[in-house]
Simulated assay, not measured.
Amino acid sequence: MLKNVLVYSDSLTWGIVPGTRQRLDFDQRWPGVLENGLILDEHHVRVVEDCLNGRRTVLEDPFKAGRNGQEGLAQTIEKHSPLALVIIMLGNNDLQSMHTHTAWHVAQGIASLIDEVRNAPIEPGMPQPPILVVCPPVIQSPKGPIADKFVGAEEKAVGLAREMRNVAATKEVHFFDAATVTSTSPVDGVHLDADQHFALGRALVDVVDPILARDF
């Protein structure tokens, strides 16, 4: 049976090339690296991306509509079900300069998204998918055109992995800290270069492999 994995994320996963408005190819983005690695491990799998630049957890962007990640998430789960796994990697945009949120607030947003996934109106008999929360790499010295947007983000992000790990433990979902295998790009301090996508995708193969084998 084909196993569908949904990735729900933002521009870090959409694959924006740091310092540009260009996009990496699917095989270069970490979901593509993950899919290819799982296939090599003999999983019959498809990784489906739902990634929107600027997406928050549960916040609105005052300048651009549709960036509240909670809105429509349940229907996204419904559309793509049955799902073998949902991967959520969000949080950095909650730390933009127009928000006053801390790492704790971001983690509470993730908790709300977990609840949305679990309460999605999937068809009777379809499995409730396991969830993997991926904490994005730490923002460092934002540069270039996005610098003003992320002023102060480094300070607000302190403790983000710890807070997300706590939420994941409380909600009994899987957790991975992307900062353990990669940093953000030195070009803009927020997004990922191609080699960083590759490092994250390869690391997640080892995380996702046993989840698919055990939970679906």
Score class of each variant (00 low, 15 high):
residue 115 D to F: 00
residue 3 K to N: 13
residue 153 A to W: 01
residue 92 N to A: 13
residue 52 L to R: 06
residue 44 H to Y: 08
residue 129 P to W: 14
residue 184 T to I: 07
residue 15 G to Y: 02
residue 84 A to D: 08
residue 61 D to G: 05
residue 69 G to C: 13
residue 176 F to K: 03
residue 118 R to C: 04
residue 80 H to D: 03
residue 90 L to I: 09
residue 90 L to E: 03
residue 68 N to P: 11
residue 66 G to M: 11
residue 184 T to Q: 03
residue 89 M to R: 06
residue 151 V to H: 06
residue 168 A to R: 13
residue 160 L to D: 01
residue 216 F to W: 12
residue 110 I to D: 04
residue 105 H to F: 11
residue 14 W to E: 13
residue 82 P to M: 12
residue 209 D to Q: 13
residue 82 P to V: 12
residue 159 G to Y: 07
residue 131 I to Q: 12
residue 88 I to H: 10
residue 192 L to T: 00
residue 144 G to V: 04
residue 170 T to C: 01
residue 49 E to T: 05
residue 54 G to Q: 08
residue 157 A to W: 02
residue 133 V to Q: 02
residue 42 E to L: 07
residue 94 D to R: 03
residue 134 V to Q: 02
residue 39 I to K: 14
residue 18 P to K: 08
residue 99 H to D: 12
residue 46 R to C: 03
residue 202 R to G: 03
residue 183 S to G: 12
residue 213 A to W: 13
residue 186 P to G: 05
residue 126 M to F: 14
residue 129 P to N: 15
residue 3 K to M: 15
residue 4 N to D: 11
residue 68 N to T: 12
residue 112 S to L: 09
residue 174 H to V: 00
residue 122 I to F: 06
residue 83 L to A: 10
residue 212 L to E: 09
residue 123 E to Y: 10
residue 189 G to L: 08
residue 14 W to A: 11
residue 191 H to S: 02
residue 214 R to L: 09
residue 182 T to E: 07
residue 130 P to R: 11
residue 151 V to F: 04
residue 110 I to W: 00
residue 214 R to T: 14
residue 180 T to A: 09
residue 66 G to D: 13
residue 161 A to S: 13
residue 152 G to E: 01
residue 105 H to E: 10
residue 1 M to K: 14
residue 23 R to W: 05
residue 13 T to C: 08
residue 209 D to W: 07
residue 59 L to S: 14
